[in-house]
């Protein structure tokens, strides 16, 4: 356990403390000015965009990923299909950043091969700028890693549904619909919501993919934080960046606390 605690201390606890303390300092003196700066229109807008982007891709990814998880759960446990999909999702869930952004640019960008091919067959998709907008292209790109992540996180819950529950429902007079509505859905609900929260935090804290695609402005909170650390225009405002980071920490902490509560409940129900 010592290496684990050492690791989390150096890479989680200390940075969090630096962020928390820095958020309330300016020029070495205590202040609430940094936190007050969170109410500025640009920061509020970035927060709203981040929340919307994260929520939409979390819910979209959760719904599609859950359906796929159920489909995978019906395949043979030791079958090739199941192992292939699980392995593929493990890779895709981690496939973000510049490489993912480039992959989408190469496909859907202004000169991407799909855009070019569609133009050749007479379908005009416009200049392809939608790909660079946070509420269009970025949502699509985020779904690319959100869906496989949902499959990985939610599959154990779906696999935890015992055949006896369906059969008991049937012998007691219930249909398939009754089973899903009265038994399976309530049992899976905490896991589903918990996984959705996990997806939310995953998208909320993603930086590299957004940074690679969005070159104009800082429409998202992680980009705004990065901007305070690197932009010459607002150089010296690192502590405002720390205040925004604190905001992110709070949002993620709340989401993860809810996730932990829900996970504890569902793990009691779905324990092997």
């Amino acid at each position: 356990m010592v290496p684990f605690f050492a690791y989390t201390t150096v890479f989680l606890l200390i940075p969090t403390l630096v962020v928390v303390i820095g958020a309330f300092l300016s020029g070495g003196r205590p202040t609430l000015g940094n936190v007050r700066a969170l109410t500025e229109p640009a920061v509020i807008s970035a927060t709203q965009h981040s929340v919307v982007l994260s929520a939409v891709t979390a819910v979209g990814g959760a719904v599609i990923g859950a359906v796929l998880a159920y489909a995978v759960s019906t395949a043979r446990v030791d079958g090739v299909l199941r192992r292939f999909v699980a392995s593929l999702c493990g890779v895709l869930a981690q496939f973000g950043g510049v490489a993912l952004a480039f992959a989408f640019l190469a496909s859907f960008g202004a000169t991407g091969f799909l855009t070019t091919w569609l133009a050749k067959v007479g379908v005009d998709t416009g200049p392809g700028l939608w790909l660079y907008e946070w509420d269009k292209g970025l949502m699509l790109v985020y779904l690319y890693f959100q869906i496989p992540l949902m499959l990985i996180v939610f599959l154990p819950a779906v696999e935890g549904l015992r055949p006896q529950w369906r059969e008991a429902t049937e012998t007691l007079g219930g249909s398939t619909w009754v089973y899903w509505r009265r038994v399976a859905a309530p049992i899976l609900f905490p896991s589903f919501v918990g996984a959705t929260l996990l997806l939310f935090t995953n998208a909320f804290s993603a930086y590299a993919t957004a940074a690679a695609l969005v070159s104009q402005g800082s429409p998202l909170l992680p980009l705004a934080i990065g901007n305070t650390l690197t932009s010459e225009v607002i150089l010296g405002q690192e502590n405002i960046g720390k205040a925004m980071a604190l905001e992110m920490v709070v949002v993620v902490a709340v989401a993860m606390t809810l996730y932990a509560v829900l996970d504890r409940r569902s793990s009691k129900w779905l324990a092997p």
Binding site: Q164, E167, A168, T171, G173, S175, P186, I187, W269
Partner: peptide, 20 residues
């Protein structure tokens, strides 16, 4: 006749109670 209309009570080997 489908299971749901056979009017039979069944006790399984284990873990058949609805956990929620």
């Amino acid at each position: 006749v489908p299971t749901s209309r056979r009017d039979m009570g069944m006790v399984f080997q284990a873990y058949s109670l609805f956990p929620h």
